[in-house]
């Protein structure tokens, strides 16, 4: 009986380049796909989806976990759901909006930083070339 119940579940992993943030089995997950929220139940068709900034909801035995994710990709294939994202924060139901705002804010800052760094690096490189 217990084995049959386990068969209806699937494994979820949330991975960022820096670390594995979350790993568990689940009955249901809801992902923030680019074109809207998408629900995944065991036995769903294989899916590859692009993610936007949003909240990933994982339900296991009635217990809900909320994880803020910042862009990335999602793949569901053969009872394994893999979320590959830039940043992930485990949060609570009440703090979902705050988490999204934080992720959006950080995302904007990093975009700005990379743009600024690129300009500074290019300027330094051209100055060095001139000196050389």
């Amino acid at each position: 009986m217990q084995k049959e119940e386990q068969k209806k579940k699937f494994k979820v992993t949330v991975i960022t380049p820096e670390q594995k943030v979350f790993e568990s089995i689940a009955d249901f997950i809801s992902i923030p796909a680019k074109s809207g929220s998408m629900g995944i139940l065991p036995g769903h068709l294989p899916v590859i989806a692009q993610l936007k900034i949003g909240i990933l909801k994982v339900v296991n035995d009635g217990q809900q976990t909320y994880i803020g994710v910042c862009r990335g990709h999602f793949e569901y294939f053969g009872m394994l759901a893999r979320v590959l994202t830039e940043r992930a924060i485990i949060t609570e139901y009440a703090l979902r909006q705050k988490t999204i705002e934080e992720l959006e804010k950080k995302h904007d800052i990093t975009q700005e930083i990379t743009e600024e760094t690129r300009k500074v690096i290019q300027a330094i490189a051209s100055l060095k070339n001139l000196r050389g």
Binding site: A33, L45, V47, A49, H73, G78
Partner: peptide
């Protein structure tokens, strides 16, 4: 290849590919 029916892509295959290939280069360099 793993034998399985075809994938469902969201938003579309070409958009996913446009996003994931640079990500592949990022992660290889990383």
């Amino acid at each position: 290849c793993r034998i399985f029916p075809e994938f469902v892509y969201d938003p579309s295959l070409s958009e996913i590919l446009d996003a994931i290939l640079p990500e592949y280069i990022d992660s290889t360099v990383y």
